[in-house]
């Protein structure tokens, strides 16, 4: 019974077979769109038959129209928010990338050092483990006190959130390097620099990039938190402001915008990953597609 299940799960996994590409194309596209289409349809119908009130959950058709005006400013459906989307989206994206850049790079450096040196581990790791368990949102009051209102607290919070996954995964990346490879390189005469550049860094890279991906995800969560509290621009601000004015259609448009931009950033990291890593996933189940 269970082996049958496993077998059918395996069988439904499209193995990359030469020559089958074209005939597979259409059903594959369907596999991607079937869930989003179903959700949109259900949502539209629920709204049309009056299952939910339109001002509480506006139907997708309305959200699309408002979103369009939010971006282009051509129909005034979004009223005072009309045409403001690009400014908000840019403000959020910029904060995410700046915060992510400092948090993730510092995290990678700290993580590598902890992984490489027991001394650094003893000095840094306990502190980091305690700090890591404080939710980043708990830093909001203090960061507002320290940095005031504006970009600074937002970038601080995002960087802080991005730091930990990058650090932990970099440490793990160093630790899981096969000791035999390290010994082999030393036996061949590699010096410290060569060991770092040619054994440690490439060996830790898959894990480092996993950390970077998690950091990017957290950055988008925190940008919204920070913008609700600390600034007057950005998709998080737009979302909160529209909520205060009972514009749930704009709230939903802002939510979807955040989702899509977050998704695009994630794709960017994945693209970077597949450009840098051509070897890592060859032997795993997930590596086949």
């Amino acid at each position: 019974m269970s082996s049958k299940l496993a077998a059918s799960a395996l069988a439904s996994r499209p193995m990359p077979v030469a020559g089958h590409g074209r005939s597979r194309r259409l059903p594959e596209v369907l596999q991607y769109v079937v869930l989003p289409l179903a959700v949109l349809l259900l949502w539209q119908v629920a709204s049309e038959i009056g299952f939910v009130r339109r001002n509480i959950l506006p139907p997708p058709s309305e959200v699309v129209l408002v979103w369009y005006d939010l971006i282009t400013g051509s129909t005034d459906a979004a009223a005072r928010y009309s045409g403001t989307w690009l400014g908000h989206a840019w403000a959020s994206t910029w904060r995410v990338f700046v915060g992510f850049a400092w948090g993730a790079s510092l995290g990678i450096i700290a993580g590598l050092l902890i992984g490489l040196s027991r001394v650094v581990e003893r000095m840094l790791d306990p502190t980091l483990q305690v700090l890591r368990n404080i939710p980043v949102t708990a830093w909001v009051p203090l960061s507002l006190v320290f940095f005031g209102i504006g970009n600074a607290p937002a970038i601080f919070l995002i960087g802080l959130g991005a730091f930990f996954p990058a650090a932990i995964n970099a440490t793990h990346g160093v630790r899981q390097i096969n000791i035999t490879l390290y010994k082999a390189a030393r036996m061949m005469g590699a010096n410290e620099r060569e060991l770092l550049r040619r054994v440690i860094l490439p060996g830790a890279l898959p894990s480092i990039l996993t950390g970077v991906r998690l950091s990017m995800g957290i950055a988008w969560v925190l940008v919204v938190v920070a913008e609700i509290l600390a600034v007057r621009r950005g998709l998080g601000y737009l979302l909160n402001d529209a909520y205060l004015f009972y514009r749930n259609d704009i709230v939903i448009a802002a939510m979807l915008s955040i989702g899509l931009l977050g998704f695009a950033s994630d794709r960017l990291v994945v693209l970077l990953r597949s450009a840098l890593l051509t070897w890592n996933e060859k032997e795993t189940f997930g590596g086949e597609h």
Partner: peptide, 24 residues
């Protein structure tokens, strides 16, 4: 080594060249 010490991120050719490319 018993557990073959080949760098998984390098090709066969690059693995063989690894030692020679070191300063030492």
């Amino acid at each position: 080594f018993q557990q073959t010490a080949l760098f998984p991120w390098l090709t066969v050719e690059e693995n063989i060249a690894f030692g020679l490319s070191l300063r030492a």
